[in-house]
């Protein structure tokens, strides 16, 4: 006992770091072993890298599968109910109660269209709001936001502690939802569960709004290789699930990869600096695309012409 005490005091005097470092490491290891396992993928990156950098580790051995280019069709149809789309016609017969729903198609709109628009998403949304905002649209995007935490996240917009504040204090005619890149390391089932919850919340607060689901944009080839989780097929799978939510009536899918896909399931290298986001100089491509893909539904309460029609 005396020997142990003597050894302990000697170590404490001459090498206290050894003593405390080993002790604290053992305590830490014990705490980690005892802590409940969290369902967290270790390869789940974030689309930008503020305080939580997910690093470019050497590429995994998973080969990239041939990408499935998203549909380049400009018309929108719902996979679940292709016959329930409405069309927008200029005829006066559309003013009467139609016996069959009109087919809604994307059409070019101007900046006024976005007066009552909300863009809700991750860093890709935030950066679009800085470098290529459209009209007076409201941008609420968080750098490390994912479908799992976006509803409660304070995204740093002054006066709004979460999306609930935003939704409760505005009447939006259009809500653009853009998530998915930060969730590539997660399974599709849990991703879609949370994604649908977001849509439900938006619908609850904004029952009349048109909802646009923005396709998850690919990343650059270099980023894909170094990260190992942004494989085109992973992004395509999630996009297919998102697309299936579009009904062509009030929920629409925006295949934005049209503007950046190099044809192989990667973002064109010249459009990005970090491999994940468009740059400040190229974000206008996304906003231009969105302005060319508005939905004008004269029968919809949120149609901007309603206000001018009611006044005439």
């Amino acid at each position: 006992m005396n020997q142990i005490k003597k050894t302990f005091l000697t170590v404490l005097k001459k090498a206290p770091l050894l003593l405390f470092a080993v002790l604290f490491c053992l305590i830490y290891a014990g705490c980690r072993a005892a802590a409940p396992a969290k369902e967290e993928s270790s390869s789940a990156p974030h689309s930008s890298a503020p305080s939580s950098s997910q690093v470019s580790e050497p590429s995994s051995s998973v080969p990239s599968e041939p990408s499935v280019s998203p549909s380049s069709e400009s018309s929108v149809s719902s996979e679940s109910d292709p016959e329930s789309v409405y069309s927008d016609t200029e005829d006066s017969s559309s003013e009467a109660e139609p016996s069959e729903p009109e087919k809604l198609e994307f059409t070019k709109v101007d900046e006024d269209y976005f007066e009552d628009a909300l863009f809700f998403g991750n860093s890709r949304t935030r950066l679009m709001g800085i470098y290529a905002p459209i009209g007076n649209a409201f941008f609420y995007g968080g750098d490390i936001a994912s479908v799992y935490d976006a509803l409660e996240m304070n995204m740093g917009v002054e006066g709004y502690s979460s999306i609930y504040d935003v939704l409760a204090t505005h009447d939006f005619g259009k809500v653009y939802i853009n998530f998915g890149i930060n969730e590539c390391g997660f399974d599709d089932e849990s991703f879609m569960e949370s994604y649908e919850e977001i849509i439900d919340v938006v619908r609850r607060y904004q029952p009349d709004a048109l909802i646009f689901l923005v396709e998850i944009m690919y990343v650059s080839e270099e980023k894909c290789i170094t990260s190992g989780v942004f494989e085109p097929y992973i992004i395509d799978n999630k996009n297919e699930h998102i697309k299936a939510l579009a009904d062509g009536k009030t929920i629409f899918y925006l295949p934005v990869n049209e503007i950046a896909d190099d044809g192989r399931g990667y973002m064109k290298a010249e459009l990005t600096g970090d491999g994940v986001h468009l740059t400040a100089a190229t974000y206008h491509l996304l906003s231009d695309y969105i302005m060319e893909h508005g939905i004008v539904d004269r029968n919809h309460p949120a149609h901007p012409a309603k206000s001018s029609e009611s006044q005439s």
Binding site: L17, C25, I27
Partner: peptide, 26 residues
Amino acid sequence: NWIVSMILSAVFVYAIHTMIRQGSNV
């Protein structure tokens, strides 16, 4: 000094925790 060593060790373990939680650049 053993108190300084204790603090250094605690900071070290916190660094390990940070490393595990957030990854570390290659």
